[in-house]
């Protein structure tokens, strides 16, 4: 037998978006500001996932300005509206949609003034990338001018938005209920190489396919998938918080082992866009679901490579070798 054995495995997964088995809600305030810029206030934002940028993109798109012209305020329970927590893969879905609604609200104010100023029907007004115009006419100006005109007419173009996701509680006896209004689906494939001398598993490739509803920022989504896969890989192969009589034996990063730059696969992602019909943006989410299929895909790939079924995570080199030894013993016994 060759020292190195390769194999592939796959796994699929599903996930619900936003808070579970309850109504979820998020609020935002928006102001189209001087210079054709904008302020967005909402109660919760960035934990690294890129939501600030997503919100800036959403606000820019809805307001007709550019993302870099959007300022997102601090998350402050005394200065911004409630948007609940940063979790449950709810950021793009809940806060993104609430910002979209707030922007539409602000635009209604602005558009009404500009339509009146131009003497055109409000439904003809469109704006993008710092410019506003009336469709089918030669009326056009910058957003900076538009905000100035709106304010000179005595109106500050502000808006607010509240977005709701309708989940219902579960029946306490049989669990019946509609916990989320939107689900996502995904599948991942892993290719591994197992070193039969050391029991080490290297993941060489991962293919991730996820339904995200509608992609707001492709690189951002990829970043979420890549990060989730490496966390899933850590759980599949090395991470293990251990205690002995309640005292941890993995108290620091020399004992609690995390994947490094040398432990990660090439990650290939592809997105499926099945838009959510129940929300203004049509986007769903990716943060958590991308982690779910990783470990089983890797474990299934290890089985493909060496015929050892790991049922208890993580698949440490020691467990892999013990599995190989057990398999050998079983095949000798069978002879």
């Amino acid at each position: 037998m060759s020292r190195y054995a390769r194999g592939r495995g796959m796994a699929a997964a599903w996930y619900g978006i936003a808070k579970t088995a309850t109504i979820d809600r998020a609020g935002s305030w928006v102001e189209l500001d001087d210079g054709g810029t904008a302020k967005v206030l909402t109660g919760v934002t960035e934990i690294g996932e890129g939501i600030l940028t997503v919100l800036a993109q959403v606000a820019a798109e809805e307001l007709g300005i550019r993302p870099e012209q959007v300022t997102i305020g601090d998350n402050d329970t005394s200065r911004s509206p409630e948007a609940a927590h940063a979790g449950a893969t709810r950021q793009t879905y809940m806060i993104g949609n609430s910002v979209a609604l707030a922007c539409r609200n602000a635009r209604e104010r602005l558009d009404a003034e500009i339509a009146d100023h131009w003497g055109v029907d409000i439904n003809l007004i469109e704006a993008f990338n710092g410019e506003i115009w009336a469709r089918g006419t030669n009326k056009r100006m910058t957003m900076e001018e538009a905000v100035h005109i709106c304010k000179s007419r005595g109106v500050v173009p502000v808006g607010s938005g509240s977005f709701t996701a309708h989940g219902t509680g579960l029946d306490p006896v049989n669990g019946t209920g509609a916990p989320w209004q939107v689900y996502v689906f995904g599948a991942q494939v892993a290719e591994v190489e197992v070193d039969t001398v050391t029991g080490e598993v290297q993941v060489l490739g991962m293919w991730a396919v996820h339904d995200v509803g509608r992609t707001i920022n492709p690189r951002g989504v990829e970043g979420q998938i890549e990060g989730a896969i490496v966390q899933g890989l850590g759980q599949a192969l090395m991470e293990d918080y251990q205690t002995e009589k309640g005292h941890t034996t993995t108290p620091g990063f020399s004992k609690y082992i995390l994947p490094t730059a040398l432990d990660i696969p090439q990650i290939n992602s592809r997105l499926v866009e099945d838009r959510d019909p129940k929300s203004p943006l049509g986007a769903k989410g990716i943060g958590e679901p991308a982690l779910v299929p990783t470990a089983p895909a890797i474990i299934n790939a290890i089985y493909d490579a060496i015929g050892v079924r790991i049922t208890s995570l993580p698949a440490t080199p020691e467990k892999v070798l013990a599995g190989l030894a057990a398999k050998k013993a079983a095949s000798i016994a069978a002879e």
């Binding site: 050391t198 029991g199 290297q202 090395m238 082992i257 040398l262 432990d263």
Partner: peptide, 13 residues
């Protein structure tokens, strides 16, 4: 050398 990963790794053997 084998440990639990490939960088910053303490030897098992």
């Amino acid at each position: 050398k084998v440990g639990q990963r490939r960088s910053l790794v303490i030897s098992r053997v």
